[in-house]
Amino acid sequence: MRETRLWSLHILVIPVIAVLLGMHFAVQHYAPVFYGMSVEKARDFATMIERGKSTAQFVVYILLLAAGLYHGLYGTRGIIRELPLSPALAKVVDWGILTVGVLIFALGTYVTWWTFVHPGV
């Protein structure tokens, strides 16, 4: 049952990733197409800090971070767990992946928060 829940969540986050990653691509990689702004300008420090102050952007990035990391790390876990691992080693893989996920999520959240509360350029 636990595995079914984890798998279902892996599937359920797909639409979240599709929408939010699409927005991220539009802002960061296709700014000339969607915003009439050069990629260089879109990635400029001042522009990035200004954009990061928006509450909507803050929420979008935290959600994308959580959804993307969960989907990707759950998939990685599935691939590794297909190897002939002993139950003890499988547990090490689970905990290792969970630790990496929590650490990277904490770092991403901190950077997003840092940008959100930055006094500006």
Binding site: F45, G68, G75, I104, G108, V111, W114, T115
Partner: peptide, 19 residues
């Protein structure tokens, strides 16, 4: 998928450079 998750982890570390 493996390439994208590896990139995502690196991307998060790399964007922390703004600090």
């Amino acid at each position: 998928g493996l390439g994208l998750i590896a990139y995502m982890v690196l991307h998060i570390i790399e964007t922390a450079n703004r600090m």
